[in-house]
């Protein structure tokens, strides 16, 4: 659906914080499915943990957030700011060699607050789930907001 170059056209995330490799499915304003391949060649595995590499749960959340960010594709020049995380669950450790399949779906919108249900699977087994809230701001508005 979207390869890595298209992802980079939509999202502003870059190395070493681009945690989404491919978008598999995309429904405008509704939902998306994407994947992230997990490889030992990532710096954080040196410390998390030596001799027992496990993908940090917060990075799974970040992968979900980056996939959710793809949903801003048709909203113009905007950035989404993570504003809440509810009901986050980490059910199984994710390790090098795993392929994370992530799904996000908008379930509520209140003005520019979007709430998203997200889940991640490895080999068709759920490994993490969370509800994420995002505030969508026009890039031109952001400077003002940051100084508030």
């Amino acid at each position: 659906m979207f390869d890595i170059n298209e992802i980079k056209n939509i999202n502003k995330h870059r190395y070493p914080f681009l945690l989404l490799d491919r978008v598999l499915e995309y429904e405008e304003g509704k939902r998306a499915k994407g994947l992230k391949n997990v490889t030992i060649n990532e710096a954080f595995f040196n410390g998390h943990f030596p001799e027992q590499p496990i993908l940090p749960g917060v990075l799974i959340i970040e992968s979900m957030a980056q996939l959710a960010s793809i949903l801003t594709k048709d909203m113009g020049n905007v950035l989404g700011f993570l504003s809440s995380i509810y009901n986050a669950r980490f059910l199984k450790p994710v390790v090098p060699g795993d392929q994370l399949i992530i799904e996000v779906e908008i379930y509520q919108r209140v003005k520019n607050l979007y709430r998203i249900k997200a889940k991640a699977e490895v080999s068709e087994k759920k490994v993490a789930a969370a509800n994420l809230g995002f505030i969508i701001l026009n890039v031109n508005e952001i400077k003002g907001k940051m100084n508030e």
Partner: peptide, 9 residues
């Protein structure tokens, strides 16, 4: 306004 939207949601 962010907390207000959280309340409404």
């Amino acid at each position: 306004s962010l907390l207000a939207l959280e309340i409404i949601a």
